[in-house]
């Protein structure tokens, strides 16, 4: 087995007396499609905040690509190849779609030494792939919800990630839009990007994931093949209360 792209080792995150993530471990192989599920407030977003560096874990270690990144600030983790989208889109509102992506290229892909023209052609290529080609020069504050979701993924891709974390990129979208975003994620995965998908839309998770992990109240309650996890009585109880 090739060495893991991400190894989360017994990570705990406490906010004062509240334990949001409790002793969670997981290992991702390169190129894997990983689904992270769990009811609201179960600690999914906190866990990926600890992985991406938006929060620092209270205990435990995060190893990425063979290096311990537990103490690195978020921007350094992004430069190493961890990119993410946000549950509620966070575009740079005063900028066009093009400029949003250029931020990622300027700062995250900093070592690639592209000149201005190469940068723009790379952005154009990413936007075309994402189906946002016609929006290149539109202000990001004028995008629709699905376009914002796609732009966030495009901005993440522009930082040339090895691992992409998609935090509910499909929330609030129509079913055809969900399929669009799902196809995009699968296409990105085919390009070799390992993907963690957090999602409440079960058929999307089932279709997408090689492996699923379910959290409840900060703990891992099930992990394995999507079908097995969904059949797990504890998962059903957590979700449906039956």
């Amino acid at each position: 087995m090739s060495h893991p792209v991400l190894h989360v080792d017994q990570v705990t995150k406490r906010f004062g007396g509240f334990t949001a993530v409790d002793n969670v471990s997981l290992t991702l192989r390169p190129g894997e499609r990983f689904g992270l599920i769990g009811p609201n407030g179960s600690g999914k977003t906190t866990l990926i905040n600890c992985i991406s560096g938006a929060l620092r874990s209270t205990e435990g270690r995060v190893t990425f690509d063979g290096h311990d990144v537990s103490t690195l600030p978020a921007y350094k983790r992004t430069r190493r190849g961890i990119a993410r989208s946000f549950q509620i889109p966070r575009p740079f509102k005063s900028m066009t779609v093009l400029e949003n992506l250029l931020v990622a290229i300027d700062f995250a892909a900093v070592g690639h030494g592209l000149n201005a023209r190469q940068q723009e052609s790379e952005v154009t290529a990413i936007l075309d792939k994402m189906g946002l080609g016609s929006k290149t020069h539109v202000l990001s504050s004028q995008l629709s919800q699905v376009e914002l979701r796609k732009m966030e993924l495009a901005r993440a891709v522009a930082s040339r990630p090895k691992l992409l974390i998609s935090d509910e990129a499909m929330a609030g979208l129509s079913s055809s839009e969900i399929d669009e975003v799902l196809d995009l994620l699968i296409a990105l995965n085919k390009d070799g990007i390992t993907i963690i998908m957090i999602e409440h839309i079960m058929h999307a998770v089932m279709r997408f994931s090689d492996r699923v992990l379910c959290m409840e109240a900060g703990r891992v309650i099930a992990e394995g093949a999507p079908k097995d996890v969904m059949a797990n009585p504890r998962v059903q109880e957590a979700y449906l209360g039956v």
Binding site: Y75, R90, M95
Partner: peptide, 16 residues
């Protein structure tokens, strides 16, 4: 500008 628009997103996009 990225900092002004959204500091958390900026940090997660590689902006120090």
């Amino acid at each position: 500008r990225a900092v002004r628009d959204d500091e958390i997103a900026a940090e997660c996009t590689g902006v120090p």
